[in-house]
Design a binder for these strands. Structure first.
Length: 377
RNA sequence: GCUGGAAUCGUCUAGUGGCAAUGACAAGAGACUGUAAAUCUCUCGGCUUCGGCCUUCGUAGGUUCGAGUCCUACUUCCAGCA
């Protein structure tokens, strides 16, 4: 069982420590998105320096390339990437939802590789086997996420997620036995709560999964932040308190991190910060700025005055603007360092505010300033 | 000097009688939430009461209902020959 110590509670929110074979994660924490075993544009050395505690890779992508066998041959995800801290893998469930030409059956999902068009069938069992082989500390159950206005559609997807979860648990326990017998380190399984925007389904999903023998929970299928607080309140009131919860895919908007932590989420991951960075959108305390805008041509101040990141300590807006205009990769690297630092640091500060009993003040102060112009500079 | 060829929106480029004119780049702006994303979208001669109006394809004339497109001269550039 994954060890999770809760140090402090405030309503549904909590401050804790997740203990993994690759070290501890102080929660709440932002987990970097390392989909293809790299945080795009960044080295793991840079991730360490900016304060990242953990990263999340994707089973679907690593299954296709380089293949989970090769990662195992390389000593597992941590050894292979030289990221010696905790790792998560997503199950590939998200790809069922987002890729075209996916055929769903009770058995699993038939994908076409986006690389060469070849067909393969991903099942709950195969996802578990692949994740064990990749060797991240924390795995996500293979779920089916859906997006529909119809209660029936969402209910069917949720029920299938539950049936698949039962298969995931069986396979996980089987693999756990095999791996532990070989003296390999423990790996852990999170169930994924579904139900979309329907609170009754979320409640049903949380109740079902609360009884399952899993180490923690992913909360999936969140598309609109409106109503997320209400949904999380429902779900996190039901889920066993002593197990950690990961809010899947949220964190592009600072408000999501506050709302998530406030309602009992312990970790977050999101591709937003690095994707936005590569496209020139940078976080500041006054909202997002687009570094490509002409107005930054002669602006020799840092992106964020006083920011401790490598980018802000050493380089100006004018320099980054120039790098983006001439399309130099260093611009994307520096922008990614800044954005990733910004969210990692933001969640660290959320954790500190919970420890210091000033979460609400920090939240109000931060969000008022950030969204005073709709979140844009 | 002679003989060919070429001049189009910041740049390159399409166009050979109905054209405010093709495409790319550049420029300006926007989007991005478990990453098929170093991607995608929009604008890009001027004015507009959104129906149009005006000014544009080296310069000046001409032919034609109509010319970026055909003709003449000139200017500049390129190639070959002297």
């Amino acid at each position: 069982m994954l060890k999770f110590d809760i140090k402090k509670r405030e309503g549904l929110a909590r401050v804790g420590v997740i203990h993994t074979p690759h070290g501890d994660i102080k929660t709440p924490a932002f987990v970097g998105a390392a989909t293809r075993a790299t945080v795009k544009a960044l080295t793991f050395e840079q991730m360490r320096k900016l304060g990242s505690q953990a990263v999340l890779a994707n089973t679907y992508h690593l299954f296709l390339a380089p293949g989970s066998e090769l990662i195992r041959e390389g000593g597992g995800l941590a050894e292979f990437t030289n990221w010696d801290k905790p790792t998560f893998t997503d199950s590939g469930g998200f790809q069922i939802f987002s890729l075209p030409q996916v055929k769903l059956t009770e058995d699993g999902a038939t994908f076409r590789s986006h690389i060469d068009g070849s067909k393969f069938l991903m099942t709950p069992e195969l996802s578990m086997q692949t994740q064990w082989e990749i060797g991240a500390d924390i795995h996500m159950a293979f779920d089916q996420l859906a997006k529909s206005e119809k209660h029936d559609d969402m209910e069917r997807a949720m029920e299938r997620t539950h049936r698949w979860l039962e298969r995931c648990v069986v396979e996980h326990e089987k693999l756990e036995k095999e791996y532990l017998e070989k003296g390999l380190p423990e790996q852990y399984l999170y169930a994924v709560v579904q139900g979309g925007d329907f609170l009754d389904l979320r409640e049903q999903s949380a109740k079902f999964e609360a009884k399952m023998s899993v180490d923690g929970y992913g909360i999936g299928g969140v598309f609109v932040a409106d109503g997320m607080g209400e949904m999380l309140k429902t779900v996190c009131s039901i889920l066993p308190e002593e197990r950690p919860r990961h809010l899947l895919g949220m964190g592009q908007e600072p408000i999501d991190l506050f709302v998530g932590a406030e309602h009992g989420c312990d970790t977050f991951d999101c591709v937003g910060p690095t994707r936005l960075a590569r496209n020139g959108a940078l976080f500041t305390f006054d909202g997002r700025m687009n570094i490509k805008n002409a107005k930054y041509t002669h602006d020799f101040s840092p992106i964020v005055d006083g920011c401790e990141c490598e980018c802000c300590r050493n380089y100006s807006r004018a320099y980054l603007h120039h790098l983006f205009k001439v399309d130099e990769i260093t611009g994307k690297v520096l922008a990614s360092i800044h954005n990733e630092y910004f969210v990692v640091n933001l969640v660290d500060r959320i954790r500190e505010s919970l420890e210091n009993d000033n979460f609400q003040e920090f939240k109000n102060e931060f969000l008022t300033r950030y969204y005073k112009n709709g979140g844009r500079v």
